[in-house]
Amino acid sequence: MSEPLLSVYGLKTNFDTRHGLLRAVDDVSFSLDRGEILGLVGESGSGKSVTGFSLLGLIEAPGRIAGGSIRFDGQELVGASIDILRSIRGRRIAMIFQDPAMTLNPVLTIRQQMKLAYDAHQSGNTGDFTARALEVLSKVGIPDPAARIDAYPHQFSGGMRQRVAIAIALMHRPDIIIADEPTTALDVSIQAQILAEMRGLAQETGTALIWISHDLATIAALANRIAVMYAGRIVEQGTTAALIRAPRHPYTQGLLNSRPDRFPPKAKLPQIRGAMPSLSNLPQGCAFAPRCQFATDLCRSAIPPWSGTLHDGFACYHPLERTP
């Protein structure tokens, strides 16, 4: 088997705060193949966004990548120089964010912003900027791009703004797009449209996607593979079909059980009792143990090791049985 496009081993990202050292991402490992869609799911504060930012070296003080390895297309990104990282950002690995109203610069036209992103990478640019800009804008479904390119972000709706951000991400034909909850701030109907379009675009261009979301249902509809994060760690990973049908980790099971579409109307929804512990106050052993019905003394004293591969596996002493 050829080397995957992106392999992450034992990634650790810490934040040195007044409340002590926060391990926002702790020993995270996964891999991504060309054209694959990986869903990274977890509650707020589980470290999924920090994982995304770490891949691009976009962690700012007081945070820092404290260990591990990120190999992208044969190149090590942990500890790489800012010039190397910058040559990868936007050109090889692009990123889109949660709220397009906050990410686009309100005082620059779409053309100006696209030009800045375009000019960030001189090499590899063949042909005309305007032509390329209009091409990606129409690819993401902006009607009449030639007229709209000189508009300002506030003249677009939320969904259109996110499409513009996606167009900017597509401009240099990246190998990977990291999407950090890009549909959370949008209406449900627009969400569905953008999801469908992103899947189409990824297939068409061969771009791999890392889709970060707290919404397992969204991810299940989009991703080939899912990694579930809890308190800075990946607790389970596997193909979407297997993970949805037969989860191994009790937390994944809990997330699946909380989906409202599985229950009749007006029935009481089961929930995972308790709340995710704060990163500054993690329990010893498995972070999920206090909320887990299967937890034993072993769970409360030692962090469960990963059983499986970079593609598939779980971290639990008492995995759920895989029913045939």
Partner: peptide
Amino acid sequence: RFARATGQ
């Protein structure tokens, strides 16, 4: 952040 993520 977005500008940085595009490599500017």
